[in-house]
Design a protein around this nucleic acid. Structure first.
Lengths: 256, 256
DNA sequence: CGATTTCTTGATAGGGATCAAGGTCTGTGG
DNA sequence: CCACAGACCTTGATCCCTATCAAGAAATCG
């Protein structure tokens, strides 16, 4: 609820530093180091894979601009999206660690990614061990997002799931400055929502219509507009706590 | 599939060191440090909470012995278990970081846990930065387990889910030496399986019966016995890759 | 050994999948 | 500038997997 712990990170520092600053204190020096780390960028066309399941990688990738999905295709051809990747998110972590990538990552829009060789992280360890740890720490925090998805899929109805999903995206996009108070732009198709939430396309359609009729949310023209934040949050039982740190002094801040 | 990267960790080093050694190289010195870190233990009676949602903590806990569950009670009273906690697992990470714990953790059996003040991790950073990073790294790897649960709940049938669930437990318990080739002891109730997989008790019962009738798995007397590992793995589309590291040189090993 | 839990089985119902068929929009090439 | 194809959205009819409700049997525990 409080302000983010660090105000040393200007918007120009990029989405990663901005996101990290939500969780841990990022010094100006560290922000600069992060920026340098992400200097090697390249563009990825929409619909192109950034990472392909089963391949092996020696770099990880920071999404600078654009939106992507992390997914797995099951043996029968069904797709499950395990996460929506937003600017500031890092992908390929497990891919460069496990022999082969466990999931594919595909750009939904034309995107810009920074390529960070895994070995550079190693080198960074010599010069900025704390920073590396902070990054790893942020990986750990991501676990909370996944756990929340588990709850979504396990115990919530289609209506609650979609509401929760749209609210999570709002909050996460706000964190990197890509959403205003109640709306954001994102190229969601109903198929995509279905694959993320384990629902069929027709059912997503019906639920979406109902949410629109009830004047809770509307998706039009690649823009999600939340018309009744309060009502929607109640419906979804949404608590954004898992997406941000509340305050409290801890391990890292104490040291700097 | 290859052997674990490190053979320097004897069974006496405890389940945490043993588990970590699966993912990263753990030196004898580090194993000793870990052991020391876990010297303050206490017992928790079964059915008792180790962590309660909403409370704040300044320590994290390593499960040394016993089995626990991480769960959330929804507003309507339904329970979703987000993870089964096995020896060597660390709980309370996010609880000591976020203001309040996001999930509760409850002991399923009488358990032994080690209490590690968060500040001690900070102190450890001065003396063993690499080790701290390795621990954090293992947190990140846990993400893979959650992602797999998302796939389970999103796109798999009840039959596949239960099969997958039981196979995951087999693999994870083997990793800490608590399961033989095809069976393990664990106090699973059908309600618990249902709450973990988003299924009702009667349906868990029916699926379990079917798995038994088909001679794939049987749960009797708090023991899970996999009778047809091959068949069950095919049914569940189970690939244990996400639970272990395959080999490959990487960040940490290269440095030691 | 009485009392909760836990398991089992059956009957019924419902949420959401599946199948089907138009409609709409967007981009592309002629 | 139009025509067409492909992607995406919408709606309806039907079915099935799994939840719910119910109630007795078995096991476990204090």
């Amino acid at each position: 609820m409080g302000p983010p712990p660090s105000t040393t990170v200007p918007p120009e520092a990029g989405p990663l530093a901005r996101k990290l600053a939500q969780f841990v204190l990022i010094t100006a020096d560290e922000a600069a180091t992060l920026g340098e780390l992400q200097s090697a960028t390249r563009t990825v066309q929409r619909h192109r894979d950034i990472i392909t399941e089963g391949k092996s990688y020696t770099s990880l990738f920071v999404l600078i601009e654009g939106i992507a999905i992390r997914y797995r295709i099951l043996h029968d051809g069904r797709r499950q999206i395990v996460n929506i990747v937003l600017p500031g998110d890092i992908v390929g972590v497990l891919g460069s660690f496990f022999e082969n990538a466990l999931y594919s990552t595909k750009a939904l829009t034309d995107s810009v990614i920074a390529t960070v060789p895994f070995t550079r992280l190693g080198a960074l360890f010599e010069t900025h061990p704390r920073l590396v740890t902070k990054v790893f720490w942020s990986f750990a925090c991501e676990t909370a997002i996944y756990a929340e998805h588990v709850i979504d899929l396990g115990r919530r109805s289609a209506l609650e799931r979609i509401a929760h999903f749209l609210l999570e995206l709002l909050t996460r996009l706000q964190a990197v400055g890509l959403a205003d108070a109640t709306s954001y732009q994102i190229p969601l198709t109903q198929e995509l929502i279905g694959d993320a939430l384990g629902l069929s396309i027709p059912h997503v359609n019906r639920v979406l219509r109902r949410l629109r009729d009830d004047e809770l949310v509307a998706i039009e023209d690649q823009r999600v507009t939340i018309k009744d934040l309060q009502g929607l949050s109640e419906l979804a039982d949404f608590e954004p706590n898992y997406l941000r740190r509340n305050e409290v002094a801890e391990l890292f801040d104490a040291k700097e």
